[in-house]
Lab assay of single mutants.
Amino acid sequence: MQIFVKTLTGKTITLEVEPSDTIENVKAKIQDKEGIPPDQQRLIFAGKQLEDGRTLSDYNIQKDSTLHLVLR
């Protein structure tokens, strides 16, 4: 499925993911596309910070959802 990741600069990254993918996995995909190390990434969805060990389906993230990427 496709999800979107919006950065603070207003750029939107499109990712191909599975509901069973972990947040860690998603961060690795963002690193592949953007070169941002996962340890600098914070992903936010519906006002919640997403934890590495959980999956997209744990957070009820569905296709065409938009996550927000904050760098630390």
Rank of each mutant, 00 (worst) to 15 (best):
I36R: 02
I44W: 14
D52A: 09
K33P: 05
T55A: 15
Y59F: 08
D52N: 07
K48R: 13
K63D: 02
M1P: 02
D64T: 14
Y59H: 09
F45L: 06
F45T: 02
K63I: 09
K63G: 13
R42A: 09
V26K: 00
E24N: 02
L15P: 00
Y59K: 01
D58M: 15
Q41P: 02
L69S: 01
V26M: 05
L15N: 00
K48Q: 11
T9G: 12
D64I: 06
T22Y: 11
Q31I: 03
K6E: 07
L15K: 00
G35N: 09
L56I: 05
D58Y: 06
Q40L: 03
R72P: 13
G10W: 13
G53P: 15
G10D: 08
H68E: 12
I13W: 07
G47M: 07
L67M: 09
D39W: 07
G53S: 07
D64A: 04
L67H: 01
G47P: 01
E24D: 05
E24P: 08
I61M: 10
L50G: 01
E18W: 07
Q2M: 04
F45H: 11
G47E: 07
L8R: 03
E51R: 08
F4L: 04
A46E: 12
Q41Y: 04
V17A: 03
G47H: 11
V70R: 15
N60W: 10
P37W: 08
A46L: 11
N60I: 07
K63T: 08
K33R: 04
P37Y: 03
S20M: 12
E34A: 11
K33M: 14
G35D: 10
D52K: 13
I30P: 00
K29P: 00
L69D: 01
T14I: 10
A46G: 14
L67P: 01
V70E: 03
K33Y: 04
D64M: 10
K63N: 08
Q2G: 06
F4Y: 10
I23T: 04
H68L: 02
P19F: 12
Q41W: 05
I23N: 02
I3A: 01
D39S: 04
V70Y: 05
T22F: 12
R54K: 07
I3F: 02
D21E: 07
R54A: 15
S57I: 08
L67E: 01
I36Q: 02
I23L: 15
Q40A: 13
G10M: 10
M1N: 08
F45W: 08
V26H: 00
L15G: 00
G53T: 10
S20N: 09
I3R: 00
K63Y: 13
E34M: 05
I13P: 00
T9V: 05
L56S: 01
D21M: 04
G10L: 06
L71V: 03
L50F: 02
D39L: 04
I30G: 01
K63Q: 08
K48G: 06
V26Y: 00
Q31F: 09
K63R: 15
K33D: 11
D58N: 11
Q31Y: 10
E51F: 06
T14D: 06
D58P: 01
T55F: 14
P37H: 09
R42I: 14
I30A: 02
H68K: 02
Q40K: 13
A28R: 13
L71A: 15
V17K: 00
I30T: 02
I44D: 08
V70N: 11
D21G: 12
I61G: 00
D52F: 06
G10P: 14
V17N: 02
I13R: 02
E34V: 05
Q40Y: 13
F45E: 02
G47K: 08
I23F: 15
P19E: 15
K48M: 05
L56P: 01
R54T: 10
P38K: 11
L43Q: 00
Q41M: 11
K29S: 09
L67I: 08
I3K: 00
L67Q: 01
N60L: 04
E18D: 12
Q40F: 05
K63W: 11
K33T: 11
S57D: 05
K11R: 14
L50H: 00
P38R: 05
I61K: 00
L8N: 12
L50Y: 01
I61E: 00
I3H: 00
D21Q: 08
H68V: 03
N25Y: 11
N25M: 12
T14L: 05
T66M: 10
G47N: 04
F4E: 09
T22I: 02
F45A: 08
G53K: 03
K29T: 03
I3T: 01
S20Q: 12
V5N: 00
V26S: 01
P37M: 10
A46P: 01
V17F: 12
T66R: 03
M1Q: 06
T7A: 03
T55N: 11
L69P: 00
E18V: 07
D52G: 12
A28I: 03
G35L: 13
L56Y: 01
I44N: 07
R42Q: 13
I61H: 00
F45V: 12
L71F: 07
A28S: 15
H68S: 11
D39Q: 11
D39P: 14
P38G: 06
L67W: 02
E18F: 15
F4Q: 03
D39I: 15
T9F: 04
T22G: 05
K27P: 00
L69T: 01
I61Q: 01
F4M: 07
L43N: 00
S65L: 08
E16W: 09
A46S: 05
E18P: 07
Q41K: 02
L71E: 12
A46R: 05
Q49K: 07
T12D: 04
Y59D: 02
L43W: 01
F4G: 12
I61R: 00
F45M: 15
Q49I: 05
K6W: 11
V17L: 09
V17G: 02
Q49G: 15
G53D: 09
L8V: 11
G53A: 04
